[in-house]
Design a protein around this nucleic acid. Structure first.
Length: 260
DNA sequence: ATTGTGGCCTGCCCGC
DNA sequence: TGCGGGCAGGCCACAA
């Protein structure tokens, strides 16, 4: 599913192919896809005639800045990706389809030059929002430092749940959480507050570099443990059979040998 | 404030 | 060969 790396590819895709093209028409017929107070009418009024001049990203939230000062926020849920002029920003998305049917374009814009910008999302778990509220978002996973992890010492929830809370760190989803905890050697079910100083430091020092490495490798599904996240999967480090259980309502795999 | 739970969405995969 | 049930997880509403 799209986590931080995939959204970063979408952002780069916009930088490369969508800036400074004038929006002629907005197609926002799927009301479900409009989040917050955003209406189709507002999207027409704010975007038609405008062009995008800059991009941003906080965690899994993609931000497009228009020449009028508006910000268009985009979320891709679990199966969404960006398609510009029929070229997808992300080709191989785990758990999603490998096709891009026109029917799955939940929000799109036609440029004056005839090109099309679309969010293609089979499951409709993504959405768009005009001028989204960013005040409750945590630090982007690529920018975290040890100070970000202070509140982890008080957390009563599982350490994996803490990592996936976008108000703490923005950008970590289920796959990256499993990868991080596997690399640092921590049982995902452990209460956050039970981590030792050394463990907090190890985790804190791992997040940004590991996420950056996944961006380099080509996506969150390129993590070392991800190919083994299935029944009978083995730990790539010591060969133990991985354990699987739901943590925070999410399927979680970990190595009982070295994640303690 | 923090934490846990359930529901939303629908293509795909598996077993019958 | 078709069918139905379960699965996948990001996000949000809601309750305790």
């Amino acid at each position: 599913m799209p986590e931080l790396p995939e959204i970063e590819y979408c952002r780069r895709h916009v930088e490369k192919f969508a800036l400074r093209r004038v929006v002629a028409k907005v197609m926002a017929d799927d009301m479900w896809f409009l989040k917050g107070a955003t209406s189709a009418r507002a999207l027409h009024e704010h975007l038609e005639g405008a062009s995008f001049v800059d991009t941003g990203r906080i965690g899994k939230l993609l931000l497009l800045h228009t020449d009028r000062g508006d910000v268009l926020g985009m979320r891709f849920g679990m199966t969404g990706t960006l398609v510009i002029d029929a070229a997808p920003a992300v080709g191989d998305l785990q758990y999603s389809s490998h096709r891009f049917l026109d029917d799955w374009n939940r929000f799109s814009m036609v440029f004056e030059d005839g090109g099309v910008f679309a969010i293609n999302d089979p499951r409709r778990l993504g959405g768009v929002e005009l001028d989204p509220d960013l005040s409750h978002m945590g630090t982007d996973a690529l920018d975290v430092d040890l100070a970000t992890f202070q509140s982890l010492r008080r957390g009563k929830a599982a350490v994996k749940t803490w990592l996936m809370d976008q108000a703490h760190i923005a950008g970590i989803g289920n796959l990256i959480a499993d990868e991080l905890l596997w690399r640092v050697g921590i049982d995902p079910q452990r209460r956050a507050m039970s981590l030792s100083d050394d463990e907090v430091r190890a985790l804190g020092e791992a997040v940004a570099p590991v996420v950056a490495e996944l961006v380099e490798r080509g996506g969150c599904h390129r993590g070392d443990i991800i190919p083994e996240r299935h029944r009978e999967g083995h730990c790539p480090r010591d060969g133990a059979i991985l354990r699987s259980q739901r943590v925070n309502g999410r399927t979680t795999y970990w190595c009982p040998q070295h994640q303690v």
